[in-house]
Design a protein around this nucleic acid. Structure first.
Lengths: 234, 234
DNA sequence: CTTTTTCTAAACCGATAGGTTTAGACCATA
DNA sequence: TATGGTCTAAACCTATCGGTTTAGAAAAAG
């Protein structure tokens, strides 16, 4: 796609390192297809510039002293603008990459990367895609999978999941308990008497080794009983 | 890395489509660097073959009639072997890709892809990397970000988060309630009287617009009060 | 064809929870 | 200084919860 009237993309730079800031601006200006509408050395100023210029993309440094980059991404997201965020960082910290992508960064590039790659990343993000260099992408996935390994290890590997001892009916009752419903309410929903509900609930308490409904609900939530509602489903 | 005594990698294929199965086996045999140690048309048989041959990698079809592929990945993971799973599918369903990667697949390739790309994917996974074709990787990230947008929208965007009306002391009390502690227990932990706790709790109920402790705990959990413990932290 | 499990239900009782009112002490802000 | 919010606390009462025992009917397992 190369035609003469192509509109330049508006770019904003936020980085506490002023030299780096100017360096990137020069680079992008030389490229000719970008219009650097502003630069800022902190997030607060950057946010104001975004409101003023509505850039297409913001290059946002992750490692800054005052407000950190993650908070910056969140606040840019709250603006409800179409501004895309490309995260910049000196380190390939898996956790940082994961968090940045989680809260809406459209890409993540290292400062050590070749300028051509930076340009490519910007273009990809501007085209609506998500850009992660292969090396970072790998780290991201490792971290991603590890997060869920820890999370699911309790539920699936666990052979002592007391929830598995519950009968079908008891599960139904527990399900209603986790909605904060009283004995009377459960009885009505299941078309059984209140005393029957109490019997089930007492059996549930014994099986889950808890003393009251709140603890039962907490056990249920922390052991995968309600995973679909509380977390991302498997 | 090319030396004559390179050991062939053991590959296992699981796919309910027998023709496809044989086709891939032929392809891999022709390649010369792979040793297809077994093929199976369902997960159950496949699991037994994995136990028997300890393959380096399993190509696992996601769309099968009996046990589906996701369950297959989980069960292969439970074997605690070093066998890696490369997911195969006819569809680039974002949700399916996300789930497969979440539970431990090392890669995901479409059946429609060129055979050279399949070979490349297998080699990458065998080398300990994670392989997602660019197109799927994009879909994955979109889905990934969308999942968390939904999850965080209630907590962060929400200006009607009733939790924000709680005083510090009330938050402390609620925190203890979410651990399933009684009035008496809370009183002891906070070094205040039981009646004081009851006063705080009643105020909490009114502010959160709920009727009992279980509902209060559920509200707290579903609105970010306990996010660090229940979900992945931001 | 027994035996066990599950689901149903009642009666009884004490403990806890929840609702309401009132009130003193402290602190900050108007 | 006065006003409002917070934290503390008590007294009172009712509703609900939780523990225990007992038991019949139906279904599943042996």
């Amino acid at each position: 796609m190369r035609h003469e009237f192509k509109k330049k993309s508006k770019v904003l730079l936020i980085d506490d390192n002023y030299e780096h800031l100017v360096g990137i601006r020069e680079l992008l200006n030389l490229e000719g297809t970008f219009d650097v509408v502003g630069i800022a050395t902190n997030v607060t100023v950057g946010l104001n510039l975004i409101k003023k210029y509505s850039p297409d993309i913001v290059l946002l440094d992750m490692n800054m002293p005052d407000k950190d980059g993650l908070q910056g991404i969140i606040e840019i997201g709250k603006l409800e603008s179409d501004t895309k965020v490309l995260a910049l960082s000196g380190y390939d910290d898996a956790d940082l990459i994961f968090r940045a992508m989680k809260i809406g960064a459209k890409g993540y590039v290292l400062k050590t990367m070749a300028s051509a790659q930076l340009i490519y990343a910007i273009e990809e993000v501007l085209a609506g895609k998500i850009y992660l260099p292969l090396a970072l992408s790998s780290r991201f996935f490792e971290y991603f999978q590890q997060s869920f390994r820890e999370e699911t290890s309790k539920q699936e590997t666990d052979e002592e999941n007391l929830l598995s001892y519950l009968t079908q009916r008891e599960e139904e009752v527990l399900e209603l308990l986790t909605q904060g419903i009283t004995y009377k309410g459960v009885a009505n929903k299941l078309f059984i008497s209140e005393t029957t509900v109490k019997t089930h609930v007492n059996n549930i308490f014994q099986k889950l080794q808890v003393n009251d409904r709140t603890q039962a609900v907490l056990y249920a939530i922390n052991n995968g009983f309600l995973s679909k509602k509380v977390k991302l489903g498997v």
